[in-house]
Design a protein around this nucleic acid. Structure first.
Length: 853
DNA sequence: ACCTAATTTT
C-alpha cells in the first residue's frame, strides 16, 4: 500500500441535508437480472422457541379500513407470527430501485446564515406585493432576487410579510420557492414555523393543505406529516383535501405503505370519505414499492365504494402490478380497460413495455410496441426512452441507435434519460470509448448531466478500473454542485472496499449517515464483503466511530495540489485523492490473505447488528458475504459462533448455515430444502453466489459430505447451468469448494456407470474455465483447486495442452482407476463433524447483548 | 383549494 488511506468525504462544507427515507423493506437482491422474484415465504416453522428480539416487521397498523384491506395478503404481517420469519423474506424479492426522489437533488448556491433579513428582502417584498395575481409574476420576482436573498431569514421575512398582508397564495408560493433551495433541517424548521404562524391569521385548513402540498412537491413528506399533526394540535380538522395532500406527499417522499395506510385509516376514522384522488395517491404509494396485491385491493375497494376510476387510476395500478412482476395479471387488467371506457394511452403502453422488459419478456414488450403503433397511439419521449433503455441494457446498440434515429426524425430530442441509458448500456458492455463519445455528445448537445449521469459514469469507470476517469467524473459532479445520494455513496464505498481502502470506506459510511442519507443493504453488503476479506478491516470501524479527526491526510498523492482550488471543499479532495491513489496502484497491490480471528467475526457481527438497528434488511448478498467471511476464517469456533449469533436475526437462514456447519444435517435438511426453494426464485447469479458461498464455507471446515449435498441440490435446481454428462463436467460458474464437491459427485456417478458395465466415452473433460467467475477475479483459483484435488485423489486427469482451463483423460484410463478398490474410499466424502438425530438445535448464546457498535 | 401516472445507476 502506497500510503495511508485518505479520509474520504464528499460532504459539502455547508451542512445541507437531504431527506432520504428508508427504502421499502422489500429490497431487491443485489443480483443482476430483473427476473421476477417471489417473496420468501412469510411464515416458517421455527427450529427453536421464539427468539428474544424478533426483527421489527413492518409496523402493523392497528385500525383497519372497513373493507378489503384486512384481507389483503400484503397485510399478512398483521397476523402474529409463530416465530421470526426469514429476514431474507421480503428482501430478495423486490425489484425496485432504492434510490428515491432523485429529482430533488438540485444545485444550490451557498448561503450565509445567522443574519436577520436584508434590505434586499425588503426590496423583494415590494416587488412581490406589486406582482400580478398569477404565480408567474411572483416567480419572476423571486428568481430575479434569488441570488441576492440571504438564506432562510430573508424568505421567512418575505412569506411572513406576505401573510400579514393577506397574500396567502403568494406566501405559500414563496415558501415553496424557499423550500427548493434549502436542505438544512434547522432552516426548514424556521421556514415552516414562520409559515404556520402566518397561518394564524389566514384561512386555516385551506392554507394548511397548501403548505402540505408545497412540502409534498419539494419531497419533504416528513414535514408534510408534521403539519398534519400540528394542525390537529391547533384544533383544526383536516379535511379530504388535507388528507389527500398528505397521502400524496407520502407517495412522493417514499414513505412506507403501512405508514400511509395508518394515515388513511385515521382519515376514515375521522369520517372523511376518500375520493378518486385519495385512491390514486394510495395506488402511487403501492406502485413505488411494487406492492401489487395491495394495489389490487385498493382498486377493488374503490369499486366497492363506487368511486370512479380514471386513466391515472389504471396506469398507476398497472405500474404497481408491473413493478411487482405480475405481467400476466397486468395484461389482463389492461385488456379490460376499453370495456370500462378507459382506453390505454402512451403511458399505459410505456408501463407495460417496461414491465415486460424487466420480466425478461422482450417478445411481449415488442408486441405491445407494435400494437400501439397499429392503434396509432403517438410515441412520446418516455416511450422512446423506455425502448432505448431496453436495447441499451441488452447491449443491442444497433437497435438502440435505430431508436435514437427514429426519435430524431419524430422531432424528439434526446434528453438526459436517453443519454443516461446509453451511457449505462455502453458502460456495462465495457465499451468505454463509446461511453466517452456519448458523454461528449451529451455535452455538445447541451443536455445537462444529472446525478444519475455522474453516478453511472463513476460506477462504470470504477468497475472498469478506470480510476482517473472515475475521478474526473467525480470532479465534474462536484463542480455541478449536486448532492450525492445513497447510490452514489454506495458506489464510492464499493470502489474503496474493492481496493482495500476499507478505513476510508467506513469513514464515508459514517459521513453519509451524518448527512442524513440512509445507507441501504447494498452499502452494507460492500462493507461486510470487505470485512470478510481484508486484514485492514480490523480497526476501521473503531477509527471511524471515534470521529473523523483521526483520519490522516493522504501523504502520497500526486494529485494533491492539482485540484485543491478547483473543487471548493477540502474533503472532496480526499475522494479525488482516493481515486488518484487507486488509479496509481490499480491492480498492483496483492490482497493479503485474511487471517480471520475472533475480532474479525465480532466486527462483522457488529456491522450486522448495526444494520438491524437501522432497520436495514439483509438480503441474500449479505448472507453470501458473511458465509464467504466464514470461509476465510481459520477458526471453526469463530465461524460457528458468528453464524449462531446471527440466528438471532434470522433463524431460518443462519440456522441452516449453522446447522450444516455443525453437522446437524438430519435436523436441518428439511429447513434447508425450503431455503433452497426460496433461493431458486431469485435470479441465477444471485442464486449461484448463494450456493457457492454456502458450499465453500462447509468445504472449508471439513463438512464435505454436507457441502456435496448442497452442491447436488444446486445442480438439481440448475443454479450453475451445469453441464453434467458422462463425458463432460463444467464447473466454470462454481466456487472452488462447490467445484471440488461436484468433482467427487461426478466421479462417483461415472464410477457407477462403469460398474453397471457401460463403456465410458473416449474422452472425459472437466472444465474449470478461466476463473473469471471465481471470487477473486482474474486468477485461476478454481483451476488450481480442481487440479490439486484431482492430483490428491490420484485421478488420472491432465491439463489439456490447448486449453489450460480443461482437465482431460480417456475413458479407459479413468475406468481402470475407478475399478481400483482403493478409489471408492477417496471418492466418498465425509463430514468432520456429525451428530446423531437427538442433537437439538435450540440454543442461542446470550452474549450478543454485550455487543454494541 | 388536494391529485397528473410511464423511462435512466449501486
Amino acid at each position: 500500500m502506497a500510503s495511508t488511506p485518505p479520509h474520504c468525504s464528499i460532504t459539502p462544507s455547508k451542512p445541507y441535508q437531504t431527506h432520504q427515507h428508508p427504502p421499502n423493506p422489500h429490497l431487491k437482491s443485489q443480483g443482476h437480472s430483473h427476473r421476477q422474484n417471489r417473496h420468501w415465504t412469510a411464515q416458517k416453522v421455527s427450529l427453536t422457541k421464539p427468539l428474544p428480539s424478533p426483527p421489527p416487521r413492518n409496523a402493523a397498523k392497528t385500525g383497519t379500513s372497513q373493507t378489503s384491506l384486512s384481507q389483503n395478503p400484503a397485510f399478512s404481517s398483521l397476523c402474529p407470527l409463530p416465530a421470526p420469519k426469514s429476514e431474507l423474506a421480503a428482501v430478495f424479492s423486490g425489484r425496485r430501485s432504492t434510490r428515491f426522489v432523485s429529482k430533488m437533488h438540485l444545485g444550490r448556491p451557498k448561503t450565509t446564515v445567522g443574519c436577520r433579513h436584508t434590505s434586499i428582502a425588503e426590496e423583494a417584498l415590494q416587488h412581490a406585493i406589486q406582482s400580478g395575481k398569477d404565480d408567474v409574476g411572483l416567480d419572476n420576482v423571486l428568481l430575479s432576487f434569488e441570488s441576492k436573498l440571504c438564506g432562510s431569514d430573508d424568505y421567512t421575512f418575505l412569506l411572513r410579510e406576505l401573510g400579514n398582508r393577506g397574500e396567502w397564495r403568494k406566501a405559500i408560493r414563496c415558501f415553496e420557492f424557499a423550500l427548493r433551495r434549502e436542505r438544512r433541517k434547522t432552516e426548514l424548521g424556521k421556514l415552516a414555523s414562520a409559515m404556520i404562524s402566518t397561518l394564524g391569521y389566514g384561512n386555516t385548513v385551506y392554507t394548511y393543505s397548501a403548505i402540505i402540498s408545497a412540502y409534498g412537491r419539494s419531497g419533504y413528506c416528513e414535514e408534510a406529516i408534521g403539519v398534519l399533526e400540528s394542525m390537529k394540535g391547533s384544533g383544526l380538522k383536516p379535511n379530504l383535501v388535507t388528507y389527500n395532500a398528505v397521502i400524496d406527499a407520502c407517495g412522493k417522499g417514499g414513505v412506507k405503505f403501512n405508514r400511509v395506510v395508518e394515515i388513511f385509516d385515521e382519515m376514515l376514522r375521522n369520517g372523511v370519505q376518500p375520493d378518486r384522488i385519495t385512491y390514486n395517491s394510495l395506488l402511487a404509494v403501492c406502485s413505488r414499492g411494487g406492492l401489487w396485491e395491495a394495489a389490487q385491493n385498493l382498486f377493488s375497494e374503490m369499486v366497492d365504494r363506487e368511486i370512479d376510476q380514471d386513466i391515472y387510476t389504471y396506469n398507476t395500478l398497472l405500474d404497481a402490478i408491473c413493478k411487482g412482476g405480475q405481467m400476466d395479471l397486468a395484461y389482463q387488467i389492461m385488456s379490460k380497460m376499453p370495456s370500462k371506457n378507459i382506453f390505454p394511452n402512451v403511458v399505459t403502453y410505456s408501463t407495460m413495455i417496461d414491465g415486460y422488459a424487466k420480466a425478461d419478456r422482450l417478445e411481449d414488450a415488442l408486441n405491445l410496441f407494435n400494437e400501439m403503433k397499429f392503434l396509432a397511439i403517438g410515441l412520446d419521449r418516455v416511450l422512446y426512452n423506455t425502448l432505448l433503455s431496453i436495447y441499451a441494457k441488452l447491449g443491442r446498440f444497433e437497435e438502440a441507435l435505430k431508436v435514437c434515429r427514429e426519435m430524431e426524425s419524430s422531432g424528439i430530442v434526446r434528453d438526459v434519460v436517453s443519454y443516461n441509458a446509453l451511457l449505462g448500456g455502453y458502460g456495462k458492455q465495457g465499451k468505454y470509448d463509446e461511453v466517452k463519445k456519448m458523454y461528449e455528445d451529451m455535452k455538445a448537445e447541451r443536455v445537462s448531466p444529472n446525478l444519475l449521469t455522474y453516478s453511472t459514469l463513476i460506477d462504470v469507470y470504477s468497475k472498469g478500473s478506470m480510476y482517473s476517469e472515475a475521478m474526473e467524473a467525480f470532479r465534474e459532479f462536484k463542480k455541478a454542485g449536486l448532492k450525492a445520494d445513497v447510490v452514489l455513496y454506495s458506489e464510492l464505498i464499493n470502489a474503496l472496499c474493492k481496493n482495500g481502502l476499507l478505513e476510508s470506506a467506513v469513514s464515508l459510511l459514517d459521513e453519509m449517515t451524518k448527512e442524513g442519507i440512509r445507507p441501504n443493504v447494498v452499502t452494507y453488503n460492500s462493507i461486510i464483503d470487505a470485512f470478510g476479506r481484508s486484514p485492514a478491516a480490523e480497526y476501521a470501524l473503531d477509527a471511524a466511530s471515534e470521529g473523523n479527526e483521526l483520519q490522516m491526510e493522504s501523504s502520497a498523492s500526486i494529485l494533491e495540489d492539482a485540484f485543491e482550488n478547483e473543487v471548493g471543499d477540502k474533503e472532496d479532495n480526499q475522494i479525488i485523492k482516493m481515486f488518484g491513489q487507486i488509479a496509481i496502484e490499480k491492480e498492483g497491490h496483492a490482497k493479503k490473505e485474511n487471517l480471520g480471528n475472533r475480532q474479525e467475526t465480532l466486527r462483522i457481527l457488529r456491522v450486522f447488528q448495526k444494520m438491524h438497528e437501522l432497520n436495514i434488511k439483509p438480503n441474500v448478498v449479505t448472507f453470501s458475504a458473511i458465509l464467504n467471511a466464514c470461509s476465510r476464517c481459520n477458526s471453526f469456533e469463530d465461524a460457528s459462533m458468528l453464524l449462531e449469533e446471527l440466528r438471532l436475526f434470522d433463524n431460518q437462514v443462519y440456522g441452516v448455515a449453522h446447522g450444516l456447519l455443525m453437522g446437524y444435517r438430519e435436523n436441518v435438511w428439511v429447513e434447508a430444502q425450503s431455503l433452497f426453494d426460496e433461493v431458486k426464485q431469485m435470479d441465477s447469479s444471485t442464486a449461484s453466489a448463494f450456493y457457492n458461498a454456502l458450499t465453500d464455507m462447509l468445504w472449508h471446515f471439513g463438512q464435505k459430505r454436507g457441502a456435496q449435498m448442497v452442491v447436488l441440490e444446486g445442480k438439481c435446481r440448475n443454479v450453475w447451468e451445469t453441464v453434467w454428462s458422462n463425458s463432460c463436467l463444467d464447473l466454470h460458474l462454481m466456487s472452488s469448494g462447490a467445484a471440488q464437491a461436484m468433482v467427487h459427485a461426478w466421479l462417483l456417478n461415472i464410477r457407477s456407470v462403469v460398474f453397471e458395465g457401460q463403456e465410458l466415452p473416449k474422452l472425459l473433460s472437466i472444465l474449470t474455465g478461466w476463473g473469471k467467475h471465481s471470487k477473486v477475479v482474474g486468477d485461476s483459483t478454481l483451476r488450481r483447486a480442481v487440479g490439486a484435488l484431482l492430483a490428491s485423489m490420484g485421478a488420472p486427469f491432465e491439463v489439456a495442452k490447448c486449453n489450460l482451463g480443461r482437465f482431460t483423460s480417456t475413458g479407459s484410463v479413468v475406468a481402470a482407476w475407478l475399478k481400483d478398490s482403493r478409489t471408492l474410499k477417496v471418492l466418498v466424502l465425509h463430514d468432520d463433524r456429525s451428530f446423531p438425530d437427538t442433537e437439538k438445535l435450540g440454543k442461542v448464546s446470550p452474549n450478543l447483548q454485550t455487543l454494541s457498535l
